[in-house]
């Protein structure tokens, strides 16, 4: 779990101008780093990072993205 979490954060911190990512992009990056990672585990790790306040969701209403809290344009601009 901790390994997955740090892989997720590493990926999100690597974005230059982008600060919001689809789950699929996160999943792909994590699986590149940790080939044995399962999709469901990655989702659980994302949820855990949401719950501890590291990540936030960002939604268009129809699709949802993940971002690091405090980075980029977020709620109540």
């Amino acid at each position: 779990m901790e390994e997955l979490k740090s892989a997720i954060i590493e990926f999100l911190e690597g974005g230059k101008t982008k600060t919001k990512f689809y789950f699929k992009d996160i999943e792909k990056a994590v699986k590149q780093k940790i080939p044995e990672a399962k999709t469901l585990q990655i989702k659980k790790a994302c949820s855990a990072l949401i719950n501890d306040g590291t990540l936030i969701y960002f939604s268009t209403g129809s699709t949802t993205m993940y971002g690091l809290k405090g980075r980029g344009i977020t709620e109540d601009h």
């Binding site: 101008t17 982008k18 600060t19 919001k20 993205m65 980029g72 344009i73 601009h77």
Partner: peptide
Amino acid sequence: KVCELPMAIAA
């Protein structure tokens, strides 16, 4: 300033 351009482009 008000938009994240990569997001608008990807949308």
